[in-house]
Design a protein around this nucleic acid. Structure first.
Lengths: 176, 176
DNA sequence: CGGATATAGTTTAGGCATTAATAGTTAATT
DNA sequence: AATTAACTATTAATGCCTAAACTATATCCG
């Protein structure tokens, strides 16, 4: 019953957003109705996926941002990473990495080591505790992701990838 | 030349993220390679679209959050909206709406009116200045959105909508 | 009527993200 | 060798976002 209400609310919410978009499209004439609908579908889905994954992480005391940093460090195999590398890999600012690493250190999941040769850089390294946490958390997290895409056949996924590539290509084109 | 480097960097970044995902998939065995790739494509595209749209808005002194509030208020046709309605429509917390409306008021784009009948509620209403701003901004913004999806045919868009619906359905199913 | 319950909005505390300014280190140039 | 430029990381200021606690008002119902 509760779920039914939620579903109805959600459908109505999307419908109202659709109405707003259509109204704007009509007013300004710059947005085709097909694009408006596809944009709406995209935004709604991003919201849903993003919220779902954040909740999964939070339930285990993690955040998606912290998780991203941990997986980067994990894959560096003990050597650790310079913070500006993390910044580049995750497409976030260096200042943000400083903060994320600070909070991971506070949780004991990461440690900082200073480079002897180049004294500008410091290396962030995942701790044993961090590795254990990933081992416990990631299998469930991956299962959640697998489930999100479980409705898509292999052909669907190929199509999905192709469509996503087209969007990124259009954006890349617009920037040049 | 600058663009070429950027493109290469971006491709390499995505490739490295792909490697990390594959490594995790192998380690834990819960993520199929097709899902890992599709998830990567999805996340990368969300990043690109989100950054692109935010920059467009910021270039005109707007934020996407503020823009969302303004378009909701615009569509209420002078009557304005209760803040909790904005919260429900945009899927953000009431506390967040308080902050967003505050900052829009500071910019003179929105005003608060208090309800005589139910003294708990206050109505947020778009000002003339806010309407003018939308009239100036939205045509360009819509053109940007149209351009993002310009590579998709009508069939592509239909497929896109269908795939997005499947993702949301899977999430809805997981919550029940 | 009057207490329990629900609703609307704000405040507080905290996390993630940005840009701009800064300090310290290294590299390049002249 | 000294100056200049580039790079790494941090800090400060700002904005979006949340959950939870709080205030005030409205409604329900025994």
């Amino acid at each position: 019953m509760k779920n039914l209400n939620k579903e109805n609310n959600d459908s109505r919410r999307i419908a109202e957003t659709r109405d707003r978009l259509r109204e704007s499209s009509r007013r300004y004439g710059k947005l085709s109705s097909s694009t408006a609908e596809t944009f709406l579908q995209f935004i709604s889905t991003i919201d849903a996926v993003s919220t779902h994954l954040s909740h999964q992480a939070r339930a285990k005391g993690l955040t998606r941002a912290g998780l991203n940093v941990l997986t980067v460090l994990r894959s560096s195999d003990g050597r650790g990473c310079q913070q500006h590398q993390i910044s580049r890999l995750l497409l976030v600012s260096r200042a943000n990495v400083t903060g994320l690493v600070n909070s991971l250190i506070k949780q004991g999941l990461v440690e900082r080591v200073y480079d002897e040769k180049d004294r500008r850089v410091c290396i962030a390294r995942i701790t044993k505790k961090g590795e254990v946490l990933l081992d416990v958390f990631l299998p469930d997290y991956h299962a959640v992701i697998e489930n999100i895409f479980s409705g898509l056949s292999l052909e669907d996924k190929t199509m999905f990838n192709r469509l996503m590539g087209k969007l990124r290509a259009a954006i890349k084109g617009a920037k040049e």
